[in-house]
């Protein structure tokens, strides 16, 4: 890297470190849920999203091409090999050198290393694999690193978070930064933290990734969503991960 780029990176890093991401310590959406919803998440036998973890475990040992390798061929002991991994995503991929979400990383591993047709962003197979990997970080703190590579993504994500948009002309920050803890028709506004994904969402009666939630939020303010895997969502996800640094991973979570 050229010296002036390093300097730019360092400046961005200093800006990110000094600016702060929220007026208050991060609080998991769990704390804003009704007791019945919390119980659903707390009990692995009741938690509907545990289905994803179980399905993920099946896929982990599955050949992706006839006679080909499985995930397990390389990552033999998932509990130790994958512990803490999801808590560090999005991150700079050591192979490609660019920022990737956990979903993008799984897709590139299956498509690249295993030479198979990878499950699509938003598909149940990808939710299952990311839930399985995320489950190995349950209880560990989100710790996405602020680096010269991630800093510009974090700043772009902050801009997306604070830009008013849609027919309702609201930004994410208008509610999740400025009014969290207050009520909207009986529901408490959360901080918009992302430490429990993939989740089972009661409103959907379905599972969803962080980026599915972004799309739902965008549509609820009647804004045009971005595409799954887009740079914009990756930036937003990276910003939110740093904003929520230290929150314990709850994967697989349950939300209202």
């Amino acid at each position: 890297m050229k010296p002036h780029l390093i300097m730019l990176g360092s400046c961005l890093l200093a800006m990110v470190a000094s600016a702060g991401y929220t007026d208050a310590p991060p609080i998991s959406g769990y704390q804003f849920m009704e007791p019945e919803t919390r119980q659903l998440q707390d009990d692995d036998f009741l938690n509907p999203a545990m289905f994803l973890v179980e399905k993920g475990a099946t896929l982990w040992g599955q050949e992706w091409t006839d006679g080909g390798a499985t995930c397990q061929s390389c990552h033999q002991n998932i509990a130790t090999d994958m512990a803490g991994v999801a808590a560090g995503y999005p991150r700079t991929d050591p192979v490609s050198g660019r920022m990737v979400s956990l979903e993008m990383k799984v897709i590139s591993e299956i498509a690249g290393r295993l030479g198979a047709a990878a499950p699509a962003y938003g598909s149940e197979d990808l939710l299952a694999l990311t839930a399985l990997i995320g489950f190995q970080s349950r209880g560990l703190p989100m710790n996405v690193a602020v680096t010269p590579e991630s800093a510009p993504w974090i700043e772009t994500g902050r801009e997306i978070f604070t830009t008013r948009r849609g027919q309702l002309n609201l930004s994410c920050a208008n509610c999740h930064q400025d009014h969290w803890g207050e009520k909207l028709r009986g529901d408490t506004i959360s901080q918009g933290q992302i430490n429990a994904f993939p989740i089972y969402r009661l409103t959907w009666s379905d599972f969803g990734s962080r980026q599915r939630m972004f799309t739902w939020c965008m549509e609820s303010i009647r804004a045009e969503p971005y595409d799954y895997g887009s740079d914009e969502y990756l930036a937003l996800e990276t910003f939110l991960a740093v904003r929520g640094a230290g929150l314990a991973i709850e994967t697989p979570g349950v939300r209202r």
Binding site: T163, R164, R165, G166, Q167, L168, N169, M218, E219, R222, A223, E224, P225
Partner: peptide, 13 residues
């Protein structure tokens, strides 16, 4: 307004 969804673009609430 910015990035109004296609279903609502050019329409009022």
């Amino acid at each position: 307004l910015f990035r109004v969804g296609s279903r609502w673009r050019g329409k009022t609430i």
